[in-house]
């Protein structure tokens, strides 16, 4: 499978990365290499092998429904690039998902 420039643009948008034209060539070749590697891996017959999702054998790790105050508003806002003491401030958005 070969990628084209449009796919690079789409993937960059999904990851919210700004990619200019000069970078696209290099990215395109890198990603094509990655995909070729994946294709190589795909040659292995994995029929009947369950996909590995979890790195431990744990199941049912639950928490009791108990409220604990962990951090203050001040601590929460501390690392925000922009805040007004109450809210996080972000670039104005109109569209809602």
């Amino acid at each position: 499978m070969k990628l084209d420039n449009d796919t690079i643009t789409k993937i960059a948008h999904l990851a919210r990365l700004d990619v200019d034209a000069s970078e696209k060539e290099a990215l395109l070749s890198d990603m094509n290499n990655i995909l070729s590697f994946m294709e190589k891996l795909n040659e292995l017959d994995t029929d009947g092998v369950e996909p590995l999702i979890y790195l431990s054998d744990e199941v049912n790790v639950f928490r009791e429904d108990v409220v604990k105050g962990e951090i203050t508003v001040k601590q929460a806002l501390e690392n925000a690039p922009s805040e007004d003491g109450k809210y996080f401030q972000v670039a104005r958005v109109i569209e809602k998902p």
Partner: peptide, 10 residues
Amino acid sequence: HDKDAKYSLI
């Protein structure tokens, strides 16, 4: 979206 003129607040 309408509480602040410059920002959206979260």
